[in-house]
């Protein structure tokens, strides 16, 4: 992941387009921006007045975050920001994103963490010692043997479902459950976990429409 460019700079007719990665940590993004402007691309960016277009992709950015980027670019007198292209937090674009599903695949092995924003459909296994976290629902087509944390930003309406569930721990919002200690069953197939009255419950997947009639959200 580290080898991927977080900031890619492209020349267009009337200046430069800075395309900013929308998945990475924001601080990493700022750091790479600084490195690029002050070290690697210093010579190439010095010279006559250049117009800059910023593209944040799908990242929700606050005014404060925008100011940070503006400040870095502002240090170079010849760079002038012409446009900033981004989705505002809570704009319809974001809601749509949350309603959709991110599809990921692979194996989350011991010691690895996979975090997703919004709902995630994971095709593969989560092994013991590995964790899959998401701010929305988690649907696993495979075995969940490790830890899954749905609604990680506090959403206790989120659910976790898996074709084969034998987790070491389940978390939804701030509710933590330790199956099989609490459920009395070692493993289950085609079931889902949800929170009811502050307690984690588990049920057959065909009961999902009763427990959460609005799930999965329609795009």
């Amino acid at each position: 992941m580290t080898s991927k460019h977080l900031v890619s700079i492209k020349g267009v007719k009337d200046g430069l387009v800075f395309k900013l990665d929308d998945q990475c940590n924001y601080d990493d993004l700022l750091q790479e921006m600084r490195d690029k402007l002050e070290k690697t691309h210093q010579r190439f960016l010095a010279g006559p007045q250049i117009h800059v277009h910023l593209k944040f992709g799908k990242r929700p950015v606050t005014e404060e975050q925008k100011d940070q980027i503006k400040e870095i670019i502002g240090r170079h007198g010849n760079l002038e920001i012409r446009s900033i292209d981004c989705v505002m937090p809570n704009s319809p674009g974001i809601v749509q994103e949350a309603a959709g599903i991110t599809v990921k695949r692979g194996i989350v092995r011991s010691g690895q963490t996979l975090h997703c924003e919004g709902n995630v459909l994971f095709l593969g296994d989560v092994n013991p010692g590995g964790s899959l976290t998401s701010s929305g629902d988690i649907y696993i087509l495979g075995s969940l043997r490790g830890m899954a944390h749905a609604g990680a930003s506090g959403n206790e309406e989120a659910i976790i479902s898996a074709s084969h569930m034998k987790p070491t721990q389940l978390r939804i919002g701030s509710v933590i459950s330790r199956p099989p200690d609490e459920w009395g069953v070692e493993e289950t197939y085609m079931e889902f976990a949800y929170v009811q009255d502050g307690k984690m419950e588990i049920d057959k997947i065909h009961h999902l429409h009763r427990v959460r009639p609005d799930l999965p959200p329609q795009p």
Partner: peptide
């Protein structure tokens, strides 16, 4: 097995 899994990832 747990450690082997970790090592495979690495």
């Amino acid at each position: 097995v747990r450690d082997a899994d970790r090592v495979i990832g690495l």
